[in-house]
Amino acid sequence: MRRFTYILFALMLVFLSACANKEDNNKSKESEQTKEQSVDVEKGLFNVEITLPASMFEGQDINKVIADVEKEGIKVTKNEDGSLTYKMSKAKHKEMMKEMKGNIIDVVNETKQNKEDYKSIKDITYNDSFTEFTMVVDKATYENSMDGFAAFGLGMAGMMYQLYNGVKSEDTKVTIKLKDQATQKQFDQIVYPDDLNNEKSE
């Protein structure tokens, strides 16, 4: 199960990053593409179904992907549009979410400890649903660095966790608060995906 969760985690981060960086001047077309490429999670009484868009598997051997997932005891259906639907028990889904949560916590801890790449970051805290993160930083160092990429990573991870937990794609939201270590005051805030959409429209 751990290998399956790691694969989902990696696929989703790449997928969300690609969606965030994609530009399309035709808004209606972009909206339709976003709908077709969204992750859909349905929670039934006994089972959970997760449908992943075909775009997440581009360049991969789809038969191998299916075989690897089914080794975990998860039923896979290949849909006409190329998407895959994973059907698992509620217990299996709960286990998956627990492991995914552990993966995100590992990312947070690695980011805090990586002083070579993230010199300004002193601490990172988060809520249980990963809808909010607080980055405690040395403000001057942060503003003269590329440490904002850490916030992007946290935003993508939080959105991913919410999606797999059944939150509709249009309702996913992650707030990153930036606090100055010296004053303990918040000096900025980033909201995903809102701020990404604003950047694209500018």
Rank of each mutant, 00 (worst) to 15 (best):
G73I: 08
Q60L: 15
F133T: 10
K200W: 13
T183Y: 04
K92P: 01
V48M: 03
M100T: 05
K173W: 00
L178P: 01
S83A: 05
K177P: 01
V191I: 15
S201K: 12
F149V: 15
F187M: 07
D117Y: 04
D171F: 02
K179T: 15
K22P: 00
Q186F: 12
E199L: 14
E132C: 05
G155S: 04
D194S: 08
I104P: 01
I50N: 01
K90C: 02
V39K: 05
N114E: 07
V69P: 01
A182D: 14
K119W: 05
D117I: 08
M97F: 02
R2M: 14
E170C: 00
S55I: 14
V48G: 04
I121Q: 02
G148N: 10
Y142F: 15
M96Y: 09
A151I: 11
E110C: 01
V39P: 02
Y6V: 13
D123M: 01
E202V: 12
M135Y: 03
T5W: 01
N21E: 13
K43H: 08
K71P: 04
M1P: 11
T5K: 00
E132T: 15
N144T: 15
S129F: 02
G44S: 14
A91W: 03
K22W: 12
V107R: 06
F152K: 12
I62E: 05
T183V: 07
T34P: 00
